[in-house]
Amino acid sequence: MSDANEAALDPQASAASAGNETALVHCTNLGKSYRKGKESVPVLSNLNLNIPKGDFLALMGPSGSGKTTLLNLLGGLDSPTDGSLEIAGERIDRFSRSQLTRWRARHVGFIFQFYNLMPVLSAERNVELPLLLTKLSSKQRKKQVAIALELVGLKDRAKHKPSELSGGQEQRVAIARAIVSDPDLLLCDEPTGDLDRTTADDILSLLQTLNQQQGKTIVMVTHDPLAAEYAQRTLHLDKGTLITGN
């Protein structure tokens, strides 16, 4: 059994153990505030969080509580204003914008509520995008894309444009795109927010499978308690601070 799966067996422990050496993500006193004119509006404050490899963490909380903000920090889309953020051994809070860009390409996969596929590209071309940032040859890329599409069960839709796919299928393509370069961390912001219950359950099962069988580390923002059930553990955010759940 891997570290990830051991950690998965005891989510409470891993969530609490700040300073855990095996943690993939390591937030210490993390804070984010926005400037509004002269005032500084805090959105996240004093946030301590460890996410071990192989975790599947659901982040819940009322609208405006800072879930997306936290996810953006974890994904290197934005930089914290306080505290430190270490991911896979790197202090990404100290990175410049262009360092973050390169870091994102190697370490994270994003899954959005509205899929954010490129409408002019076929499913396989969409999935290939992150691989264009690697040194892989086109042959190797093709192979990886095929594997990713197979994993999400869309091998037969490779040539379809997003407009020719259902919402659930689009989200599968987006998931394939997020995992194709085998990133450390999958970040999903309300991945089922735009889907009906049945389709949502399919997508959540897929995420769960990716977590359990491929060992993917997943952080998922959701406001749907049923969705959170698929995760190993749930944390609640309220007004920018964490409340340990369950």
């Binding site: 994904g75 262009s98 860009t101 994102r104 959005f112 490129m118 995008l129 940032l133 795109r177």
Partner: peptide
């Protein structure tokens, strides 16, 4: 905007 932001999130450069 959305297309650009998505590409940038994936790791495409400015």
């Amino acid at each position: 905007t959305r297309e650009i932001a998505t590409l940038r999130a994936i790791g495409f450069g400015a």
